[in-house]
Design a protein around this nucleic acid. Sequence first.
DNA 1: CTTGACTCCGTACCATGGTACGGAGCGCAT
DNA 2: ATGCGCTCCGTACCATGGTACGGAGTCAAG
Lengths: 129, 129
Amino acid sequence: MKSLTISRLAEAGGVGVETVRYYQRRGLMPTPSRAGSAVRRYSDEDVKRLRFVKSSQISGFTLEQIRELLSLDATANRKRAREIARARIRDLDQKIAAMTRARRALKEMAKLCASGIGRCPIIPAFNQA
Amino acid sequence: MKSLTISRLAEAGGVGVETVRYYQRRGLMPTPSRAGSAVRRYSDEDVKRLRFVKSSQISGFTLEQIRELLSLDATANRKRAREIARARIRDLDQKIAAMTRARRALKEMAKLCASGIGRCPIIPAFNQA
DNA sequence: CTTGACTCCGTACCATGGTACGGAGCGCAT
DNA sequence: ATGCGCTCCGTACCATGGTACGGAGTCAAG
């Protein structure tokens, strides 16, 4: 079960060893007991947890929000869990909407820019999109 | 034309005065000449520029990337402008995809969580989505 | 049983994106 | 003309999310 060293865990999660330690200090990753040995060992569950942290980060969540989401996995308070999930979904919807507008604006700018009429008008493209 | 004080500009852009000054230091906002007076004045164009910075930030661009995008507005190098636009669109697509997956996972978790079977399984929800 | 790689932990340092502070000067209304 | 609030500028400080360093200990292959 717990067979990975920290460097293997980090490798599997696509982060550095120092980053894993940082996540431990922030309460995002466990610090397993040393179980007789002098080194701590990690499981595949820990790899999944680490990957969860990474993908949540790409979605723009702060480490604190990710810590909160992870705490839901083990919570008995379903009401709170659903509230938090709803709040994060709202955040995502707003950001996705902003990015979709930005994407449209960049496309529009590239088109006008290619047409060769005047300059590459990025500010109006955004402020209208 | 240039009639706004810095505090009016900041207000119109929804940021603080110190933030505008910071953007000036970072080359994102102009530092207009004092034109005889002791205070610098800003135009509606500057307000638009400031709003552009703000909305680009929500889309996850760094200030450096935003500075680059702003520089396109005045550039004659259309090829470079289109390349940069394409790069930023790729960034957006990746982030939008990640966020869409995260949204689906949160929805799924909320559903399972509401059903009352077992816990609120957030990690598997993400790692499958 | 040594040697080289890895672990552990504390602490320091870094970049990004601000926010706050403080002194000096200016400008407008009373 | 005087005061209140704003401006200007430099500098300091802050939170977030790492990254680096250094010393002591450990493990495992030769």
